[in-house]
Design a protein around this nucleic acid. Structure first.
Lengths: 165, 165
DNA sequence: GGTATTCTACTCGGATAGAAGTTGTCCGAGTCCCGCCGG
DNA sequence: CCGGCGGGACTCGGACAACTTCTATCCGAGTAGAATACC
């Protein structure tokens, strides 16, 4: 039960992309450099986001990544699911069907323990689905303040992206 | 974001112990055999439960494990925390404080992304805390039916435990 | 017969290998842009 | 002057190691209980 470090990187990267104009894009090297992260590994996570339908990639000169949908329609769960997979965290091994009482457990009725954990996971996912990357980008931008926002805009322009506002 | 397999084993073991009288105990070998699990590895998880305050162990002849508290006061979260640790799943690396906009992020204000994930985790924990091992044992016992419950009682007696009822 | 003692068998506990997954890195496949050439 | 073409540089994409963590196992430390010897 440990959230992969790559999820954090991916959310930060998406938050940066949410601060750019819809037709603007940034490459993996720029997204990694913004937080001083290893470019090659960041690229790996960005590929996973493309596979998960969160980002779209364009190759060639002045290519890069951009959000596949409006930032308001991308939730934190979408990002985590793209990196870690959307399957359940608790995978029932059905060990109840082994041992002296195995014959008395109906295979049609789901395991009570697995059900309890799956409900808890559903609550977890519901919370993440309620938070969009647009909200995150908004809050981070507010925290930056006017000067920080200007610095972000400068950096984006230097790296081929067109910031919003 | 993957729940360790040991958590499932530990919950099943606690459910078995919840079906025994308060002054009764079972050793690691018996608890492992009930679900046909490797005894040595099951013992390791039981030790973790002792360290987490969920079980108490007694050594020597006719020793074994028993619940440290009434089953109604032991939640699924207590068990998971004993096995996987009670720390947060999402560990913020504070990468926001690196890069060109690092100076504009106040170190006193917590990271918005980490906050969102921590809230989701709190919802997850809340659901697990609401389910006690007594409820789980009750449901499993109901699923067994009268005959299965009798088989369980026989098995427990053969292994030195005194079943409830 | 009662009691202290020793002995044995049984239990947990931590230290020790093996496997899996995550983290980190590299080079090749594909694409767009710019300059060049010809009409 | 305009359109087609080729070269080059840049980008993503998947294949390849190193490390941490989980899974699995073993043997030693410690204890309760029974059998025994003694009073």
């Amino acid at each position: 039960m440990k959230t992969l470090e790559g999820v954090e990187w991916a959310v930060h990267a998406c938050a940066v992309l949410a601060g750019l104009a819809p037709d603007s894009s940034l490459n993996a090297a720029a997204l990694a450099d913004f937080h001083r992260l290893p470019a090659a590994y960041m690229a790996k996570h960005l590929q996973a986001l493309v596979r998960g339908g969160v980002l779209t990639a364009s190759r060639g000169g002045r290519g890069g990544y951009r959000l596949a949908r409006p930032a308001a329609e991308i939730s934190l769960w979408d990002i985590q699911a793209a990196i870690e997979g959307s399957g359940p965290s608790f995978r029932c091994q059905e060990i109840r069907r082994q041992g002296p009482c195995a014959g008395y457990t109906s295979s049609r009725v789901p395991c009570d323990i697995a059900c309890a954990f799956h409900e808890a996971e559903a609550a977890y996912r519901a919370h993440l689905k309620a938070v969009s990357i647009a909200q995150i980008a908004e809050r981070v931008g507010v925290r930056y303040g006017p000067e920080g926002r200007g610095a972000f805009a400068d950096w984006a322009l230097r790296n081929g992206g067109t910031p919003i506002g």
